[in-house]
Computed example of a mutant assay.
Amino acid sequence: MYNEVHDIILYLIIEIRLFFRGVFIRNIWDLVNMDSNKYLKHADILLKYLNKFKIQKMKEPIVRALSVKGCYIASAVLVDEFLNSEYEESETSYRWLVGNALYEIKDKNIKKQIEDIVAVPKYKKDSGQLIKLLEEMK
């Protein structure tokens, strides 16, 4: 398991380095600190690797890196991530983080999906940012 995760991270970092020549990334968390204008350019790379990780904690930096206004390419994938993520007791769970990413992206094309999510009681704890997004879409 460790070797598989390590290999996925390594390939992701190599692919980002090749895409952005001159950008130095030491670890997966460096993605979060990149210039947000670059996120839109490499969102497809991040999305490709998001589904390769099975552990939610490993997906966090990718979701954070996708949390950029206008990154509409990530919306549908993040809706699926929200719906399929495991429940966590923590105040800022992975599901909340995905909801926050959707809030930051502000894709009006997924309004119906967001409305459906916030209507489900089991998602109430993690849907605060989605409710805020719907209010802003009015």
Rank of each mutant, 00 (worst) to 15 (best):
Lys122Asp: 13
Gln129Asp: 14
Lys112Gly: 09
Asp126Thr: 11
Glu91Ser: 09
Ile16Trp: 04
Lys132Ile: 10
Ile110Phe: 14
Lys38Met: 12
Pro61Tyr: 04
Leu10Phe: 01
Trp96Val: 14
Lys57Asp: 13
Arg26Val: 09
Arg21Glu: 10
Tyr94Asn: 05
Gly99Arg: 01
Lys69Leu: 12
Ser90Asp: 07
Gly128Trp: 02
Asp116Arg: 08
Gln113Cys: 01
Glu89Tyr: 12
Glu60Pro: 06
Tyr94Glu: 03
Leu40Arg: 02
Lys108His: 11
Lys41Gln: 11
Glu60Leu: 08
Asp80Trp: 03
Val118Lys: 00
Leu66Tyr: 07
Ile28Asp: 01
Ser67Tyr: 07
Ala119Gly: 06
Arg17Glu: 14
Ala43Tyr: 01
Cys71Val: 05
Asn27Phe: 12
Lys124Pro: 08
Ile73Thr: 11
Leu83Gln: 13
Tyr87Gly: 10
Ile62Leu: 07
Val63Leu: 04
Met34Gln: 05
Leu130Phe: 01
Lys48Pro: 03
Leu40Pro: 03
Phe53Trp: 09
Val5Leu: 05
Asp35Pro: 04
Phe82Ile: 00
Leu10Asn: 04
Val77Pro: 07
Lys106Ile: 01
Tyr87Trp: 10
Ile110Gly: 15
Val77Arg: 13
Ile114Ser: 10
Ser67Gly: 11
Leu31Val: 05
Glu135Gly: 15
Ala119Cys: 06
Asn3Gly: 09
Gly22Leu: 02
Glu15Ala: 07
Ile73Ala: 13
Asn100Pro: 03
Tyr39Ser: 10
Ile110Tyr: 15
Asp30Ser: 06
Cys71Leu: 08
Trp96Glu: 13
Leu134Thr: 12
Glu104Ala: 13
Leu133Cys: 15
Trp29Cys: 13
Cys71Met: 07
Trp96Gln: 11
Asn100Gln: 10
Ile9Ala: 13
Leu31Tyr: 05
Leu133Lys: 14
Ile62Ala: 03
Gln56Asn: 14
Ala76Thr: 12
Ile25Arg: 02
Leu78His: 06
Met58Cys: 04
Glu81Phe: 02
Glu136Gly: 15
Phe24Ala: 11
Glu86Ser: 14
Lys54Pro: 04
Val77Gln: 14
Ser36Val: 07
Glu86Trp: 11
Ile8Asn: 04
Lys69Gln: 14
Asn84Phe: 15
Arg64Asn: 12
Ser93Val: 05
Tyr11Thr: 10
Val23Ile: 12
Val5Asp: 01
Tyr2Leu: 12
Ile110Val: 15
Leu83His: 09
Phe24Asp: 11
Gly99Val: 07
Ile55Glu: 08
Ile62Val: 09
Ser36Phe: 05
Ile45Gly: 03
Val32Arg: 00
Leu134Asp: 11
His42Gln: 04
Glu89Cys: 07
Arg26Ser: 14
Ala76Asn: 15
Tyr49Val: 01
